[in-house]
Amino acid sequence: MLPWIYGFTWQTGNVIFLSIFYCVVAVIFGSFGIAVIRAYRDLTSGRLNEIRWHVDFDDLPEFAKTCRHVFSGEIEYQVCRNGFDCRSCKTHSGIIGVHMGANASYTGNESPSGLTIQSDCMYHRGHTWVHRESDRTLTIGLDPLAERLLWSRGKAELPEVGSRLHVNGAGWYFRNGGSRVRVLSPVDGEVVAVGGRDEGFYLKVNPGDDSDLRHLLKGTEVYPWMTREIERLEILLGADGDGINLADGGVLLDDVAASYPELNWENILAQMLLES
């Protein structure tokens, strides 16, 4: 085994065999060690939110990861590989360069399945809307789909005023007993005010100097996205036409969860809110 252990010989075969063995052991433990060190660094450097989103995003089914440009019909098929962060996406910047005007022209309000899409709001894929206020702060709220899903899901746990949010980090939570649902933060910035369901918004955020909101959906992208999301929800609910009906006369029920208590809502909510 080792040169000073009884029975060791310097025969070629022996040396080759043991060298390979030690290499393998070194690779296994080395890479494991590297993983440990990296994890430690991740913990200390506060990259945790980023990682959490990365992990969550990684596990999303491809269906849920469809590129926004597929919704707008600009490309045929594309699965997002960038964690829905279009700000650093090459595909996005490339496409935007060509079709810049398309989104801007959209003004109308539409309501798929009775869900009203506000034309002055930008939508995040985590089912939040962002409205830029006149004082440059951003108001954040749940989109109608999420609002209906979370209708009876307990209390919102909102961050303290003054804390910082990161795009795709945890925005706030809904806690219901032991389970907790995370709502993604759509923007970077400092929380300046908190609201609630009754206030019509949840957070007000000061994005600071350079607020880049390119990653949010707006205009014509929103409708197909929302349609797709409803479809996704139907799949999750196992809707097959004979049992569960999401819509009552084409309009989504106000409190979907309460209507189907037998389903694993924890899982469905996690899926819908991009928390795998």
Partner: peptide, 14 residues
């Protein structure tokens, strides 16, 4: 648990 999350992420990378 943050440590587990980080570990999972890093293990996945190797």
């Amino acid at each position: 648990i943050p440590a587990f999350l980080a570990m999972e992420y890093e293990l996945h990378r190797i």
